Simulated scan of single mutants.
Amino acid sequence: MAYFLVAVATKENLKKCIETNLAGFTGSINGYWALVDIEIGDYVSFLHGARVYNLYRVEDKVAIKNPDEIGPWRPIKLPSGREYSFPFRLLLRPIRQLSESMVRPEFAYIAENLLLRGGYRKTHFQADEVTLHNVSVMGNPSEGEFEKLAHEGIPFTPKIAFSKDLVNPPEVFPMREVILQSLLRKALERGFLRNVLETFGLEGNPEDFEVLGEKALPSGHVDLLIKPKHPIGIVPKILIEVKMGSAGNTELGQLGRYISESGPETVGGILIARSFKRNIKRVPGIRLWGYSFRGINQDATYTYPELLEKLTLEEV
Rank of each mutant, 00 (worst) to 15 (best):
K281G: 12
P206D: 07
P169T: 10
F209G: 01
G295C: 12
N249A: 10
I286F: 10
K16A: 08
K227R: 15
E152C: 00
I70T: 06
F107P: 03
V283A: 11
E19R: 15
L239M: 09
Y291Q: 08
L115T: 14
V267A: 04
P236A: 01
F200T: 09
L116E: 11
G118S: 11
E145G: 07
D68G: 03
P141M: 08
A34P: 01
S142N: 06
T131H: 06
S28H: 09
F173G: 01
G295A: 13
P155D: 05
P75D: 06
K65C: 11
F125D: 00
L252D: 09
H221V: 15
S85M: 07
M244N: 07
L90G: 02
I29T: 13
M138I: 08
G139W: 11
R51A: 02
S262I: 04
I259H: 08
G139K: 09
F162E: 04
V8L: 02
M138C: 12
T131S: 11
V222E: 08
K186E: 02
Q181H: 01
S28L: 08
F173R: 05
I95A: 05
P87H: 10
L78K: 14
K65H: 06
P75G: 06
G139E: 10
E59F: 01
A9E: 15
V58W: 00
P94N: 05
E251W: 09
P72H: 03
N249V: 10
T131M: 15
K159T: 11
P72R: 02
A2H: 10
